[in-house]
Amino acid sequence: MNELMVFTDLYKFLGALGPMRISMTGKTFSVGFTPMRFVGKVAKFATLNGEKNHQCLILHVDAGNPTSTRGEAVQHAIQMTLGFDIQQMRKFKRKNHEAYIPLEVLTNTKSLEAAKELIENEFFRAIKK
């Protein structure tokens, strides 16, 4: 599976999780996903980044709380499940309240389905806040 196919599949999957506000920045090729609900505000849940050196899905696991380190725990779980080390794959500055899934580690249906399960769990956690 190439990164474009993975990007497209994840785009469709994220959009189908529930009512979602989808935004695209003008400067970069990144798409943000913010769950919508009738009561209360929900922060951005995920960003699909298609930039050449940053191709990844960013999960904003504790959005709105930049001092949180929950993203590190989620990142560790993702790395154990999918078998990669983010520090070796990406040199850009990462935030402690976010978790990153490089698109190139989703090389087959099994890894993509495992990633979707992790994403779905984080989505339902985010909308319960």
Rank of each mutant, 00 (worst) to 15 (best):
K129Y: 04
K128F: 02
I119H: 06
L103V: 09
A114V: 00
T8G: 10
P35Y: 00
I127T: 06
E113H: 08
G40C: 10
A16I: 00
E3T: 10
A114P: 03
S23E: 13
F45P: 12
N65C: 11
V6F: 06
T67K: 15
A77W: 08
E51N: 12
K93T: 15
R21W: 06
T8M: 07
M36T: 12
T28R: 03
R125N: 14
T28S: 13
L118T: 11
N96C: 06
H60E: 13
F13C: 04
F7Y: 11
L59M: 14
T107H: 02
T67N: 08
S111H: 09
R70M: 09
I22M: 03
P19A: 12
L82S: 00
A77G: 00
D62H: 07
L48T: 09
K27T: 15
T67F: 14
Q79A: 11
R125T: 15
L82W: 02
N96D: 15
R125W: 04
M24Y: 01
M1F: 03
L106E: 05
Y100V: 13
R125H: 14
D85V: 03
M1Q: 05
R90K: 15
T34C: 07
V74D: 08
S68M: 04
M5N: 07
D85K: 09
M89C: 03
